[in-house]
Design a protein around this nucleic acid. Structure first.
Lengths: 216, 216
DNA sequence: GAACATAGCCTTACGCCGTAAGGTGTCAAG
DNA sequence: CTTGACACCTTACGGCGTAAGGCTATGTTC
C-alpha cells in the first residue's frame, strides 16, 4: 500500500497535494492528518511545512487543485437555458468525484484563484440571462444553493454521513415514522440520479417561469 | 461571563446541552471541545462522560435539542403550495438561529427521534402534493437540497465561512475576476433575505409547473 | 448502627493532533 | 575551502478525546 522503502522521489507541492487528495478519499476527512500524510509520503510531518506554512494553506491548495479539474462551460451556441441545464449536471459530476473532500470545499469560501475563475465564468453565464444584474446574481446564488445541497447530501448527508451512534430500530421506524420508513428507499445512493434530475428540472422550470414573468 | 465560583448546581444532560449550544455559538464549532465545555460548566472534562458516553453522543443530543425547537407545520387549511412556501421560510428561520451549529446538523444524518419526527411531518406534507409517491419524496429531497444549501451558505459559506489565508487583493479581483467583483455586494449578509426569497419563489414556481404538467 | 451499593464527579494517563523552534546534511556558487 | 541556501528532520509544547480507575456522599438493606 504505502511506498516508503525505495529511494524516495523528492517532495513537491504537487506531490503533496496529490497524496493528500488520495489519502482524504481513502480514510475520510476526519481521519486525514498531516502526520498520516507524511507517513504516506515517506517523510516526516514537519517536512510538509517546508511547502505549506500550515494545514489550512494545504487545504486551500486542495480546493484550487480540484476546482481546476472542473469542466469548462457548455457550448455558447446553445440556448441559454440549455447551457444552464448542462452546467448544473456538470457541476454535480465534478463535485461528487471527490466525495470526502466536497464537504470541505462546499463549506469554505472559495477565494483561491482557480475557484474565483470558475465563479467568474459561472456569473458570466448567468449575466447572459437577460435579467437585471441583481437578479441574475441572486439566481446564480440560488442555483448554487441547490447544487451545493445536492452535492452535500450525496457525499455527506442522510445516506452517507456520520450516523447517530444508536440508530432507531427498524420496527420503531415503521411504527412511529411511517413516512420516513416509506421514503427511505428513495434516499439511497441508487436513487441519487433520479432525485437530482427531478430537482434540477424543477429548478429550471422555475427559472423559465421567472424569465417569462420578467419579459411580460 | 463564566460562573464557576459559586456553589455549583449539579450537572445534568439538559444543563450540559444548553452550555454546549451556548459555547458553540460563542467560540465556533472548531474551537468547541469537551474540556472547554467542562471549564464553562465548572467541572472536570470527564464528569461530562457520566452523562454522555462520547462527544458524538453529545452532538447527537444537540441535534435532537435544536430540531425540537423547530416550528410546527403551517395551517393545514391553507392551499398545499402555500403550506410548502411557509414551511420553507420556517425552515430557514429555524436553521439560521444557531449558525455555528448548523454546519454540523446539515452534514450529519438526522436519525435522532425528534429529527425523524420532523422529517416524518415534512414527508407527510409532500405526500399531499397529489404527485406519485416516488415523485413526492424526490421533490421533498430536492427542496431540502435548496434549503440546506441556502442555510449552509448563510451560516458557513462565501460570506461567513473560513477564508483563504491569503485572500486575493481587491485590485486583482477587479481586473481578473470582474464578474465576481461586481457580484460581491449581493453575496453579503444584508442580501441574504432577498436572495433566499428569489430562489425559493423560483423553486416554488418550478413545483407548480411540475404539478401542472402531471395533471395534464 | 453497620455493611454495602450506587451516583456523581475527579485524577491520571495514553496516544493522537497541529506546529514552533531549531538542527543537520547536501550541494552549488564564490 | 568557505559560505549560504535549500530540503528535510528532531524535539518539544499544548491541546484534544477518552480509557481506567479512585474518591465521596448518599441512600438501602440487614
Amino acid at each position: 500500500m504505502t511506498a516508503k522503502e525505495k529511494a524516495r522521489e523528492p517532495l513537491s507541492r504537487e506531490r503533496i497535494e496529490l497524496a493528500a487528495l488520495e489519502l482524504i478519499e481513502a480514510v475520510g476527512l476526519g481521519e486525514f492528518s498531516i502526520r498520516k500524510l507524511a507517513s504516506e509520503l515517506g517523510c516526516e510531518a514537519m517536512s510538509i511545512y517546508h511547502y505549506f506554512p500550515s494545514k489550512d494553506h494545504l487545504m486551500d491548495a486542495l480546493i484550487d487543485h480540484v476546482v481546476a479539474e472542473f469542466a469548462s462551460l457548455p457550448d455558447p451556441a446553445l440556448p441559454w437555458i440549455e447551457r444552464v441545464r448542462r452546467a448544473g449536471y456538470d457541476v454535480r459530476r465534478n463535485v461528487t468525484r471527490r466525495p470526502n473532500l466536497f464537504i470541505f470545499v462546499g463549506t469554505h469560501r472559495m477565494n483561491t484563484p482557480k475557484a474565483l475563475a470558475w465563479l467568474n465564468s459561472m456569473l458570466g453565464l448567468f449575466g447572459e440571462s437577460g435579467l437585471p444584474h441583481a437578479e441574475s446574481v441572486r439566481l446564480f446564488r440560488s442555483v448554487s444553493y441547490f447544487l451545493m445541497g445536492a452535492g452535500l447530501d450525496e457525499t455527506a448527508g442522510y445516506a452517507r454521513g456520520p450516523s447517530t451512534v444508536e440508530p432507531v430500530p427498524d420496527d420503531v421506524m415503521a411504527r412511529d415514522f411511517p413516512e420516513v420508513a416509506g421514503a427511505a428507499p428513495f434516499f439511497r445512493p441508487a436513487q441519487f440520479d433520479a432525485t437530482f434530475a427531478l430537482g434540477w428540472e424543477t429548478m429550471l422550470a422555475g427559472i423559465e417561469a421567472l424569465l417569462a414573468g420578467r419579459r411580460r
